[in-house]
């Protein structure tokens, strides 16, 4: 089951929250959905779930609009807002009405409570007394209740302790490994490093990037190579002849863009120019993200930002 988003547009008054958002989330992978606060992540997810109506475009789950699914909770499990629990209701009762809504048997309650680590006393307490992390786990339990083919989690790491973060990463990986479609949003790229297979980057209501993690990293690092040489002038001539752009950053240090490290080594070796300490500068996911969303962040600092 895929999530297909095509040309979504949405305005809140004067503010354009989504401006032609299109992407596809495939099964078997963890897809990260990242962007600064207010970029349109939650709005997109709300439209996919039929909570908000799009002004244009459409969002389909398994080829159908969410609101026309026959058995929505068995198809899609979602957690948009972990705080969305009535404080007067016990955690277990919160899951119970959802189970009734989906026609699920009561044993699923114990199964998911066990799975998210809320089995025992916690589930019998009223949700008003839960910590943010417990609410988060309860929200995830609700999403898992219908054993869905598609999972959509909005900022699931928020409020979890380090142990919880490790747990949820493992959970997401294993869900994807079972062939499910997993979409996880975050405003911090670091949270998704090592978890996500693909990334959809959104900023200012537009998709900035939609690629696998290695592709993104490559694009961000841009093939920058740093090296030291005792003959900088010769090296610069050789490297620019080979197609690189060379900059001198010190007495004997150069950086080359437009050539990867192997090509640079080969060119220098062929011309017998001495060199040492060749290193390909590898960007972190965080840097790639900062570069991609720089414009969006500027927008975010301006007054009157829309809802996220």
């Amino acid at each position: 089951m895929e999530i297909e988003v095509d040309g979504l547009r949405k305005r809140y008054g004067q503010v354009s929250a989504l401006d032609g958002v299109s992407f596809t989330v495939r099964p078997g992978l963890v897809t990260g959905f990242v962007g600064p606060n207010g970029a349109g992540k939650s709005t997109t997810m709300r439209i996919v779930l039929g909570l908000d109506a799009a002004d244009g475009g459409h969002a389909l789950v398994g080829g159908r609009p969410y609101r026309s699914l026959r058995d929505p909770l068995r198809a899609v499990g979602a957690m948009l807002d972990a705080a969305a629990v009535h404080p007067g209701r016990r955690g277990r009762d919160h899951l119970r009405w959802i189970a009734h809504a989906a026609g699920l048997p009561a044993r699923r309650l114990d199964e998911v409570l066990e799975q998210v680590g809320l089995a025992g006393g916690a589930a019998k307490r009223r949700a008003g007394g839960y910590s943010l992390g417990m609410r988060q786990r309860l929200g995830i339990a609700a999403a898992l209740l219908g054993d869905p083919r598609v999972l959509m989690l909005d900022e699931p790491v928020n409020g979890l302790d380090p142990e919880g973060i490790v747990w949820i990463r493992g959970l997401l990986r294993s869900l994807a490994a079972e062939g499910r479609t997993v979409l996880v949003s975050s405003h911090l790229m670091g949270e998704l490093e090592g978890t996500a297979d693909r990334l959809v980057v959104i900023g200012r209501g537009r998709i900035i990037a939609d690629a696998s993690v290695p592709e993104l990293l490559a694009a961000a690092s841009g093939g920058r190579v740093a090296l030291r040489t005792s003959a900088p002038a010769d090296a610069m001539a050789v490297l620019s002849r080979a197609g690189g752009t060379v900059a001198s950053v010190g007495a004997d240090a150069l950086t080359v863009t437009g050539l990867d490290a192997e090509a640079a080594v080969a060119a220098l070796g062929a011309s017998r120019v001495p060199f040492a300490e060749v290193s390909a500068h590898r960007a972190t996911l965080e840097e790639a993200y900062m570069e991609l969303t720089r414009d969006a962040a500027e927008f975010e600092a301006a007054p009157g930002g829309g809802r996220s």
């Binding site: 779930l49 039929g50 909570l51 969410y66 609101r67 699914l69 929505p72 909770l73 899609v76 979602a78 948009l80 807002d81 705080a83 969305a84 629990v85 009535h86 404080p87 919160h94 959802i98 809504a101 989906a102 609700a142």
Partner: peptide
């Protein structure tokens, strides 16, 4: 009112979209 106050309207409409 409490559904809107506590935002449980979101899980409600996700679980029951009709």
């Amino acid at each position: 009112g409490a559904e809107y106050g506590t935002r449980t309207i979101v899980p409600t409409l996700v679980a029951m979209p009709w």
